[in-house]
Write a protein that binds this DNA or RNA. Structure first.
Lengths: 103, 103
DNA sequence: TTTAATAGTTCGGCATTCTTGAACTATCGA
DNA sequence: TCGATAGTTCAAGAATGCCGAACTATTAAA
């Protein structure tokens, strides 16, 4: 199955990072990963009404923004937040966004 | 000429705010207004290669996100950052974004 | 008081991006 | 080996974004 490419954080522009976070579903997934670390794609989903293909796309975008890392484990894809790296690249940003997330 | 409507900050969702900031040109305008306060539309523009209509659209979006206030003064529209209000709504967010802005 | 210039908005069409169903790949369990 | 599970990829329609052209409003000049 597909092997993913993860960008170096230094190559991620701020716009892309903000764009990735500027979607309620994606932000909810990031928030989940901030709490639970190591979630399959379906487990990372904020609700089960989101189609698989849409979910897959959201995760692809989060990967491109340097926010998550995805590795294959059996037939699941395990996602983790690249917290330390992201924070190193954009200090304080993720904290500020997560702190202001709606309940 | 048109009179603008400015949203109450409490009605601005985080997604909209992030989306407004997730564009290099808009972010540059916000950064400018953070320094210079009170800029006409053309003066707020990050460069003069941006078409008027595009500029107008960007500013409309920033207004809708509760980031700027626009009032008419003669034939100019004067824009100011709604800094205190925005910070009250999303504490630390604008600071974090501006601090991470590319040079 | 026309006339011209300035400052920006609005509209409409093209282009890009987003969403999602359908088909596909890969892995695991029976 | 067969079926079920987990997720990707593709393609088409929907939704957004960008920008030229036409328009409105205000000021300045003639």
């Amino acid at each position: 199955m597909a092997r993913f490419t993860h960008p170096r954080l230094e190559d991620v522009p701020l716009d892309l990072a903000l764009h990735a976070l500027a979607d309620p579903n994606r932000l909810a997934m990031v928030a989940r990963l901030a709490e639970t670390e190591r979630l399959s794609c379906t487990d990372a989903a904020p609700c089960d009404s989101i189609p698989k293909s849409t979910l897959s796309n959201h995760l692809k975008l989060l990967r491109a923004a340097g926010l998550i890392d995805t590795t294959q484990a059996g037939r699941e894809m395990i996602n983790t937040l690249r917290r330390a790296e992201f924070d190193g690249r954009f200090p304080g940003l993720l904290d500020a966004v997560l702190a202001n997330r709606p309940v």
